[in-house]
């Protein structure tokens, strides 16, 4: 049976997380279909059809799917699920929001944020904030999964030539409606797929200091900006910048943590980065235990100097 991958997108273009999810699907089987549910999302479907390894794209194009309301999307996915052995979505806030609903509608248990595929029924996933990795075998005949995108290298976005099939399956719960959205605007790379991330913590003391000390370094390096929970809670930066167990998971080539102590919940979100730099005035800070390069310094002096020298 084929495998279904749910596409992550903004109705205009396909998000890279989908390519990571397809990569995970490819480790399970070869017949991979992508479902695009959106509104005015033909371009997304065309893009998905070009992705490596995709054999068919299903496009459900209707206003009911414009904002990815979990209830509507879950009814749709559960409705097409009959043809598939596995259903996968990226473990983004979209995937996390609707996928458990799909599993419940199908009356199966699910596995969240898999980080490895052992075989078609057996998967690895981090538990306890990444302090342990569990290998879990599921006996469900329909396997519902969300995928930790940083654990799978994306498939190529070009090269495929799948057919696009439009399905007019409109599902609406009538119990929930979209009110509004405030999306952060940024010219910087997206946090979860950036090659370099510069993050600041409580030590930054206010939002202006993020602008003054963190952002210039990020811009010089072409990096994304991240933060600890403490910095987000205190309102220095918006919530979508939180890196950690309960925020975003990142694994860039280079992660620079300035004024972040390195609580396990923060480490859970960044310890798979290739190279970790910590700038902290406390040599005992737990972040030192995962840092490849630890600079004991006052960040207010070190960051401007670093910015001028890279």
């Amino acid at each position: 049976m084929a495998i279904l991958v749910y596409a992550e997108h903004d109705n205009a273009s396909l998000k890279k997380a989908t390519l990571n999810t397809i990569a995970a699907a490819k480790q399970i089987g070869d017949d991979i279909h992508v479902l695009v549910a959106g509104s005015g999302a033909q371009a997304v479907a065309d893009e998905a059809a070009k992705a490596e390894g995709v054999t068919k794209v299903l496009l459900a194009d209707n206003a009911a799917y414009e904002h990815q309301l979990a209830g509507n999307v879950a009814l749709l996915v559960a409705d097409v699920a009959g043809d598939y052995s596995h259903i996968l979505a990226a473990a983004t806030t979209t995937g996390k929001n609707f996928m458990p609903r799909v599993a419940a509608l199908l009356d199966v248990s699910m596995l969240s944020e898999i980080s490895g595929v052992v075989d078609a029924q057996t998967f690895e996933r981090p538990i306890y904030a990444g302090n342990a990795t569990a290998t879990v075998k599921t006996t469900e005949d329909k396997v519902v999964l969300t995928v930790r995108t940083t654990a799978f290298d994306p498939v190529a976005s070009e090269g495929g030539s799948a057919t696009v099939e439009t399905i007019d399956n409109v599902q609406e719960t009538g119990k929930a409606s979209f009110v509004n959205e405030e999306m952060a605007k940024s010219d910087r790379p997206e946090l979860t797929s950036a090659g370099i991330v510069v993050s600041g913590g409580r030590a930054l003391a206010n939002g202006e200091n993020f602008t003054k000390y963190i952002e210039p370094l990020a811009d010089k390096l072409g990096a994304a900006v991240g933060a600890s929970r403490a910095a987000v809670d205190a309102g220095y930066v918006p919530n979508d910048m939180q890196v950690g167990q309960t925020g975003k998971i990142v694994a860039p080539q280079l992660y620079i943590a300035a004024g972040i102590s390195g609580a396990i919940q923060h480490l859970a979100g960044m310890k798979d980065s290739k190279v970790i730099v910590a700038i902290n005035n406390d040599p005992e800070a737990p972040i030192a235990s995962v840092a490849d390069y630890f600079l004991e310094a006052d960040l207010f002096e070190a960051l401007p100097e670093l910015t001028s020298k890279v």
Binding site: N131, T133, V136, V290, D292, Y293, K309
Partner: peptide, 27 residues
């Protein structure tokens, strides 16, 4: 349970890092 835990292992250790003495050394 429809899920069997085959094993639970600690995450891979990162290799020990070093302390750098200056921004120049870091760069």
């Amino acid at each position: 349970s429809k899920q069997e835990i085959i094993k639970v292992v600690p995450p891979a250790e990162r290799k020990a890092g070093i302390t750098v003495g200056s921004v120049d050394e870091l760069v």
